[in-house]
Amino acid sequence: MQQTRIALLIDCDNVSHNAVEGVLEELAKYGMVNVRHAHGDWKSEHLTGWVERLHPFAIRPMQQFAYTKGKNATDAAMIIDAMDLLYSKNIDAFALMTSDSDFTPLAHRLRESGLPVYGFGEKKTPSPFVQACTSFIYVENLMGSPDDEKAIAERPKKKTRNELRGDTSLVRLLRTAADQTADDDGWSNLSNVGDYIRNNSSFSAVNYGYQKLGDLIRVSELFEIDMRFDGTAMFIRPIRKQTAQAVPELTMC
């Protein structure tokens, strides 16, 4: 079976170089990142940190001169690059590493062509771009290596059971996904739940401190869990609140 071919396009002007290793590790879950393009003006001192990341991670620098002050030529060049790759039909998915909402129309266009769009940006990223992606991960959750104690300390900790259950938007999303993918017996295959969520939101379990949706589901305790097929498939069913039994009416003699 052929691996999903992913194109990673990086807007170096608007995202930290410290997260690129974590981004590549995350994308490895979905397929092979065979295109890695980093856009920016490589004469700028602002990109010094990025220069050090190019060769170790086999990233190709895409030079874009800043012809006019106040105009971001990098955006236009990156959009053209994405469309060229789209029409080449050699790519199965896109990853856009940027915190710039100007790429929102591009994300919409790529998804209209039937391709997933994985977004990676800083927490300052405007909501329109976040929601336009198939899934979106804040790069602060991916920064640093195991030896980087400062980066590890700054990573968001795993959300607790109460924190997950107190997030009404998350609870609504999970329950809706389970209801929409449930069989006649009320059980949902977690794989189908994940597909529904990816098609209807930019949710990623990583933003809550978990590597897998199943881990988040377990901690939330919002669902019954049934492991099937020798423990290889998780099925879930919402835990409904128990309704009090009706008290029989007393009849007068």
Results as ranks from 00 to 15, higher is better:
I91K: 00
P126W: 06
V130T: 09
E149R: 10
L96P: 09
M78W: 14
A76C: 12
L86V: 09
D148I: 13
R111H: 09
D75H: 11
D148A: 07
K89V: 00
A77T: 06
K124H: 05
S135F: 01
A132T: 03
D147H: 03
I79R: 10
A151E: 02
T98Q: 04
L106K: 08
S99R: 03
A73R: 00
D84R: 13
D81F: 10
K89Q: 15
G114C: 12
A82N: 08
F136A: 04
F94V: 11
Q131I: 03
F129V: 09
T104Q: 05
N90S: 11
A151V: 02
M83L: 14
N90C: 02
A107W: 02
Y87C: 03
N72G: 10
A82W: 04
S145H: 11
D102M: 11
S135M: 09
L86Y: 08
D148M: 11
G144D: 09
L110N: 06
I91R: 00
D147C: 03
A82I: 13
A95N: 07
Q131G: 02
T134Q: 05
L96F: 05
E140G: 13
D102H: 03
E112P: 01
S127D: 10
S135Q: 11
E112C: 07
S113H: 15
A93V: 01
G121L: 12
T74H: 04
A76T: 14
A76G: 07
M78S: 13
N72C: 00
V130P: 01
Y118L: 12
V117D: 11
G119L: 05
A76I: 15
S135N: 03
A76L: 14
F94Y: 06
Y138F: 12
P126Q: 10
F129L: 15
I91M: 01
L85W: 12
L110I: 13
A73C: 13
E140D: 15
T134M: 00
T134H: 13
E149A: 14
F103Q: 06
M78I: 10
L106R: 05
R111N: 05
S101H: 04
M143Q: 14
K71Q: 15
G114P: 15
M83P: 11
A93N: 02
A132S: 15
K124F: 01
A93D: 00
I91G: 01
S145D: 14
S88I: 03
F120N: 08
Y138L: 00
M78Y: 10
